Structures are given as C-alpha cells and as structure tokens.
Computed example of a mutant assay.
Amino acid sequence: MDTKFDFGDTDTTNLVYIRRVATSTLPHEIREQIPEMEAMYAVHDADGERLALVRDRSLAFVLARQNELTPVSVH
C-alpha cells in the first residue's frame, strides 16, 4: 500500500475541471443577466482560472471537448 507508483509523464495542459456554481456567488453583473437561475456550471483550467460559465453540466462537457480539452467533474 505504501509502494510508490510511477504514473509517467502526465500531461495536464488540456485538462479542465467542471463544477457547479451557485449563482449567488457570482458577480452582480452576471447575476443580473440570469435572474431566474440558481446554479450554473463553470469550466476551470488546471490553475483554477474560470474559462467559461454555461447553463448546464452537459453543455460544459461539450464545450470542453469541442475545444480539444479533457473535462473532469469536480464535486
């Protein structure tokens, strides 16, 4: 169990993270544009920078793949 495993050279340059975001935590300017929504999905790069906000989870995954990125879900 304590044996180290060599995963090789892992390339995370095209990895993005998809997570649910409560609209109440977004800036006022964004909340004004989406008053009826309680949550959106954000696409983040490996450094945590938000790349996009979309209406639903499946759209976030589609957007990532269309841009040749590998999406993973974050809880």
Rank of each mutant, 00 (worst) to 15 (best):
Y17C: 05
A42T: 01
D47R: 11
V72K: 02
P27M: 06
V54T: 15
H75C: 07
R55E: 12
I30Y: 11
D56E: 13
M1A: 14
D11F: 07
A42L: 04
A39G: 00
E29L: 07
L51N: 08
D47Q: 14
E68N: 10
A22D: 15
H44S: 13
H75D: 05
M40Y: 08
Q33P: 09
G8W: 06
V43L: 06
T13L: 02
Q66Y: 01
P27S: 00
G8K: 05
R20E: 15
V62Q: 12
M37K: 15
R20G: 06
G48C: 09
T3Y: 06
P71M: 00
M40W: 02
E29T: 13
Q66I: 00
Q66T: 08
L63M: 12
A22L: 14
T13W: 03
A64C: 01
V16Q: 12
V74Y: 03
L59E: 09
S73D: 05
I34M: 12
M37Q: 15
P35H: 06
D47S: 10
V43I: 06
M37L: 15
D45C: 11
M1H: 00
F7N: 13
A46E: 15
L63W: 13
S24R: 14
N67I: 06
H44M: 14
L59S: 09
R57N: 03
D9I: 02
T12C: 04
D45G: 05
E32N: 09
D11Q: 07
T13F: 00
T3W: 00
D45M: 10
E29R: 02
A52V: 09
H75S: 11
V74P: 01
A42K: 06
R50C: 13
R57K: 12
N14A: 14
H75N: 12
A39P: 05
D9N: 11
A64F: 07
V72M: 03
T3H: 08
G8H: 04
E32G: 03
D56T: 09
G48N: 12
T23N: 12
L53R: 08
D9E: 09
Y41W: 12
V74E: 13
E68D: 14
M1S: 07
D6F: 04
S73T: 07
S24Q: 10
L26P: 11
D11V: 12
S58K: 02
R55D: 08
K4L: 05
R65D: 09
R19Y: 13
N14Y: 08
F7Q: 13
D45L: 03
N14I: 06
S58R: 05
A39E: 14
E29H: 06
E32F: 13
S73M: 05
D56P: 04
T70E: 01
D6E: 15
E36F: 04
N14T: 15
S73W: 02
H75I: 01
L63P: 01
L69T: 07
M37E: 15
T10R: 03
S24I: 13
E38M: 06
L59T: 14
E49H: 10
E32V: 09
L63K: 00
P35F: 09
Q33V: 12
E68Y: 00
D56S: 10
D56W: 05
M40D: 01
